[in-house]
Design a protein around this nucleic acid. Structure first.
Lengths: 259, 259
DNA sequence: GCCTAATGGTTTAGAGTCCAGACCCTATAC
DNA sequence: GTATAGGGTCTGGACTCTAAACCATTAGGC
């Protein structure tokens, strides 16, 4: 990294100089290992790799990501130390996603969720605004091909045998809907918001009641999108993402009372 | 997502692989100079520095951005070679923004606009969807303080003596509106979209008629936002950004016919 | 039980990037 | 004409990333 010298002189710039003030913010040179960490966390957050599942080997990851094994190892070391992964030696060894990195414990909530609470509020807020817009647009532009893909994703979601599969299918379903907008920028936006939530949260709270409600909402949402009922799609999406927000809030409340 | 036992055959990865496929895309290590280029282009695009205006000196830029002068020089070299900047030697020398890097010429349109046309369509589309949502949210959350800032920005816009000042004020105005959402994520989203447009486009086409129309729309938009008329704000924003899209399209048409 | 293979763990040399700082060159202001 | 404010150039050193070889550990096959 670079020197931290005098560049200070950064008086409070909270008024409106964001346009002028932010463009010259210090450039931090990102290390490759940090990028690898981000990719892996994203993959786990999106459900590409789930609990107890084995990641590709170091050499495979290095090849997949086009970086050296050294950098991959650096990233995996970070994730292992943070408690996301577990490593096993010897033949059939490798890195495994640890089971308990969700908001399962009040401990996790206090240590990870609460400190980032402000950012969290912002992400939720943005998602509640963006996703209905995406759902509306998807409903307006959904082709037969899109509809087929969305239906398949919904079916996968309904068939999901456990929580992990459910998370993964949920991710795919929302992705399929976003893709029906036929605009990669919106798809990325949606992915980014979902990732940032999972990234802070691990998995969302999960009970039978929640699942029933989520299933109904997903069915309604898919139906509205496929049939091109844009107002309804937008409205259901808003309700859907408000639900998940409510759950998190309840979780945090509970954790704080336990304290 | 078809990881295991997907019901439908899902052999190829071209169908919906974005979730699974994209996380492992090769990591490209960005060089510091490239980041500097981005920052400078953004600053110019947002109107922080305008035609014939002098940029800070190399040493100042290096200090502002927290990078070495070597990297700044590398970036400035690129921008000079590309034709964005002009360099003058000796005392009172420095780097100056060149005048003619807008869509002033059919040449520019063909060389820069047309090759990126697909991305351009996507950006416009996203903006037409996102900005109304932002305007609506701003209208719903606008405080007195926000209203004051927005009014000031509007006045600056009305007072702008020339095209450059107008561009800068336009940028500030939209920024002020976005900030009334009180959500940094949305503010960044708006900045990013506007930047990416200016970045491809330089300045937008500009005639007296266009300016009159833009002024009216800005006044209506500000009034709707400040008074909390969210539906109207959303609607005007949509109209406003559609106007700029229409102008660009007309420009490209013309350039292609000249060919 | 022994060997093999697959995996993580370690080391090293070299190329590339970035930085700080010193110094040179040029044109303007005075 | 000289001082000065800028860009232009060079160098040594620190850090990062890579490639490739080699070590250590364990499961599976015989």
């Amino acid at each position: 990294m670079s020197v931290e010298t005098a560049s200070g002189a950064d008086p409070d710039t909270l008024d409106e100089p964001t346009t002028v003030g932010q463009w010259a913010a210090p450039i931090v040179s990102r290390r490759v290992a940090d990028d690898v960490v981000d990719r892996l966390v994203t993959a786990i957050a999106l459900g590409v790799y789930v609990t107890t599942q084995q990641l590709p080997t170091e050499r495979e990851l290095a090849s997949m990501l086009g970086v050296s094994r050294t950098s991959v190892r650096e990233a995996l070391k970070q994730l292992t130390q943070t408690g996301y992964l577990e490593v096993r030696h010897g033949r059939n060894g490798g890195y495994f996603v640890l089971a308990d990195w969700g908001p399962t414990s009040a401990e996790h909530v206090r240590r990870h969720l609460v400190p980032n609470w402000e950012e969290f509020e912002q992400i939720f807020d943005a998602r509640t605004l963006v996703e209905p817009m995406i759902a509306r647009t998807a409903a307006l532009r959904c082709t037969d091909e899109d509809a087929a893909r969305i239906s398949t994703a919904l079916q996968d979601y309904l068939d999901a045998p456990d929580h992990d599969a459910s998370r993964r299918a949920d991710s795919s379903l929302h992705q399929a809907i976003a893709q029906a907008t036929h605009n990669p920028i919106l798809v990325n936006l949606s992915v980014e918001l979902r990732t940032r939530i999972s990234l802070n949260l691990g998995a969302e709270p999960y009970t039978d009641e929640v699942r029933r409600q989520a299933i109904r909402q997903h069915q309604e949402l898919v139906s509205a999108v496929i049939d091109g009922r844009e107002d309804e799609a937008s409205h259901i999406a808003a309700k859907h993402f408000t639900l998940s927000e409510t759950l998190i809030r309840a979780l945090v409340e509970r954790a704080e009372h336990e304290e």
